[in-house]
Design a protein around this nucleic acid. Structure first.
Lengths: 359, 359
DNA sequence: GGCGGTTACTTTTGCGCATAAGTTGTACGC
DNA sequence: GCGTACAACTTATGCGCAAAAGTAACCGCC
């Protein structure tokens, strides 16, 4: 790899002159030499050594994207189709801004932070991995941090968060179910923290506003670990007849559940209505096609990256951005209203099998 | 960030001594000072400046992972759930070896190579993006390159390739279909290059070995672009009755097709048998569950990374690795053999709904 | 005609690290 | 008691770049 020094030697001039041409410092070098240098640069296909540049400038032009890897390999976040879309959004945005992306998958916040400071990363996007320990460690490294989908209250105080209006999403969906005559609505999720909790709350609120009482028994817990998913599903399917509809915290759960119900001869939506959250391929391709809450995952990645880039430029950014959701009505909800005077379909346009991308 | 120089100053010793302790150069520093330095390092939580280190050592400890971004945004490779699993495999492997991963999504090989040389990347993994132009450009940068799933003949000459025994996979699957009495078997794919061609060839070979003639009309072309997927499916569904089985080049196509067939009242597997290739969530969760060819995507990533790491250590590696496939029999193939004396099930064990990971 | 200002450069310094080369001090063999 | 070998250091150098500081020539102007 040719260096500035070598170029300067061959052109019989100083390195600073060459450097000035490279950086387009107009007025500091005559048009004549500028052209001479530029031609030479093109000829030898000069590429700067980024390590030297970063060392001299004390910056890295790297943005780190840290993804939580759960301890259980079956649940590794990276395995979720969702994630690659998000990565794509981040990468595209920062590349267009002249930054590079270093991807890091780990559940050890300390390790992440060490990595970040080793590489002198300019900024950090955290996805799914902000706990209180993480916050404590990250305070030491004064780099801008943007979180995606964090619900850590402590974290919200310190960092920008890019999230979703989860509560509104489930509120709308539960309201839709209620409008279709459903009263016995279960909520299926695997925990009561973070995103899951926010979604649960939206659902609860809709019930409350409709005058329906929420009972603890409405909460169906799914255990997604590979070893016990079967017994988990068995139990949920057994309890399904208690309800006329089940709201699932994600499309993945919804589709998983539908498959399990189908295996046991329970028909969706005739026997029970099922709805999801996310609007991914899984639900789009399933038959009956899944009625769900749509979120724009790529926009999440793009917004997170944009926000971080703004912070790097010293611009102020809101410390909480909630992207909107909208419900997508497909074929997994049955209208069980006896009084059919006013159809909800008039309000929520029924959109069948939205086009999606393939391969 | 504290530097070696500063540490040396505070401990009243030379930077070389500190550096030696950091690098565990035994015998060059007394146990006494070693302990003193080590304690101090721990106390101040020293992290080396990687740019300085790389500059001094002329290496980067970075491995680049370049993914092809197709021009059409709907087909961006990163959008495929497949990809995140692969990324995960690569990341895990190189991290364990002390390397970092820089992710790059682009379709401009020149751009990738410039990036690679800018960052002084130690090695490169290319996924889905090796064309002849790419080869020409990459020759200039003498870095080890490992390709995943390339079928560029020119590329195979120059670089290591990690692929799949695609041909064997479709050969086995076609043989299975034939054993179930199918003779009119279509092959569905969107082109006749690379992976698709290899899979087509395995299918053709199986037909030939069974004495069935392959006709050009057996090839169903699916056009996956978002704009014309619907008409593409329409046409394929119209032609479906010509066949008793359709082999799809991927699970995504298989499930997409099944949904389209279902929408038109065509029952799988009663009216027509469908099989896929990949064995991903989509097919596992679909009902009927998809009979398909299994490939271990994570292993692909891991193997590619392992191979590259070996090359970096100067070890010899085979210049072509083909990972095995196996067929997974689920519920989308109907046995239409009139003579039922010997069931294929005795040969290919029927495995129903293999456990899969959730969320 | 000396002086500020400008243009078009060059020289020099330092970023933080690794390491080659140099400097002690001391134990040991003969 | 002198040379040698070695342990335990320190000093000095350079990686490639950016940028501060320096220089030299020229121009116009009161």
């Amino acid at each position: 790899m040719i260096t500035i020094k070598e170029i300067a030697r061959q052109l019989n001039m100083s390195t600073t002159t060459v450097s000035n041409v490279i950086h387009g410092k107009a007025g500091e070098v005559s048009d004549d030499t500028k052209k001479k240098v530029q031609d030479f640069l093109d000829k030898v296909d000069y590429v700067p050594n980024i390590n030297a540049r970063n060392l001299a400038q004390n910056e890295s032009k790297i943005i780190g994207l840290a993804l939580k890897a759960r301890a259980d390999k079956y649940e590794n976040l990276i395995m979720d189709p969702f994630v690659s879309v998000l990565i794509g959004g981040v990468e595209e945005t920062i590349r267009n801004a002249g930054y590079f992306m270093m991807l890091y998958i780990s559940s050890d916040t300390g390790e992440i932070m060490r990595h970040v400071s080793t590489w002198n990363v300019d900024g950090l996007i955290l996805f799914g991995m902000l706990n209180d320990d993480g916050i404590r460690v990250s305070e030491k490294y004064k780099k801008p941090i943007v979180c995606i989908d964090t619900y850590s209250l402590e974290g919200l105080k310190h960092f920008t968060n890019i999230g979703l209006d989860d509560e509104q999403g489930t509120y709308d969906m539960a309201s839709y179910l209620i409008s279709q005559g459903h009263k016995k609505i279960a909520f299926l999720s695997d925990n009561m923290n973070g995103v899951d909790l926010a979604r649960l709350n939206g659902y609860k609120k809709a019930l409350k506003d409709a005058g329906i009482k929420y009972k603890e028994t409405n909460f169906l817990k799914i255990r997604p670990r590979a070893e016990d998913i079967d017994e988990s599903l068995e139990e949920i399917c057994k309890r399904a007849p208690e309800f006329t509809a089940i709201m699932c915290v994600s499309d993945l759960y919804a589709v998983t559940l539908m498959s399990a119900l189908e295996d046991r001869g329970i028909k969706v939506p005739d026997d029970i209505s099922i709805v999801g959250f996310d609007d991914n391929m899984l639900g789009q391709l399933h038959r009956p096609a899944l009625t769900t809450v749509h979120q724009d995952v790529k926009a999440k990645g793009v917004t997170a990256a944009d926000t971080l880039l703004k912070q790097l430029k010293g611009q102020k950014t809101p410390n909480q951005i909630k992207l909107p959701t909208r419900i997508i009505v497909r074929d997994t909800v049955k209208n069980i209203k006896t009084d059919n005077k006013e159809s909800y379909k008039d309000i929520f346009s029924k959109k069948r099998n939205d086009s999606y991308s393939c391969k």
